[in-house]
């Protein structure tokens, strides 16, 4: 019974992650500005990936060190990359 519940929650997390991925990636093809796309993309990619990794963690808890390392590097690197891309892509006004 418990196993079934864990599988359902795990599939739910992974499904939610996939929906977030799709939601964040869809505007990429549209005509919006770089910063708008960057905002939705980095938010949805990070949260979606974290949800997928949590779903994997529920399924195989024995390998929690590696998956926790993936969670931490996801949260740190994706956020910093979003900031660096935003900083580099905006033109500084010439004084």
């Amino acid at each position: 019974m418990m196993d079934q519940l864990v599988n359902i929650v795990s599939n739910g997390c992974i499904g939610a992650g996939l929906v977030l991925w799709l939601w964040g990636t869809w505007p990429l093809v549209g005509p919006r500005s770089v910063l708008y796309k960057l905002h939705t993309l980095s938010m949805a990619d990070t949260l979606g990936s974290v949800a997928i990794v949590v779903g994997l963690l529920l399924r195989i808890p024995s390998e929690w060190p590696l998956l926790v390392m993936a969670l931490i590097s996801l949260a740190i690197w994706n956020t910093i990359l979003g900031y660096v891309l935003a900083y580099c892509s905006t033109e500084e006004p010439n004084d």
């Binding site: 964040g24 990429l28 770089v34 796309k37 960057l38 993309l41 980095s42 891309l85 892509s89």
Partner: peptide, 9 residues
Amino acid sequence: WQKMLAFAS
């Protein structure tokens, strides 16, 4: 920069 966004994703 749009390409960079896509590659990051």
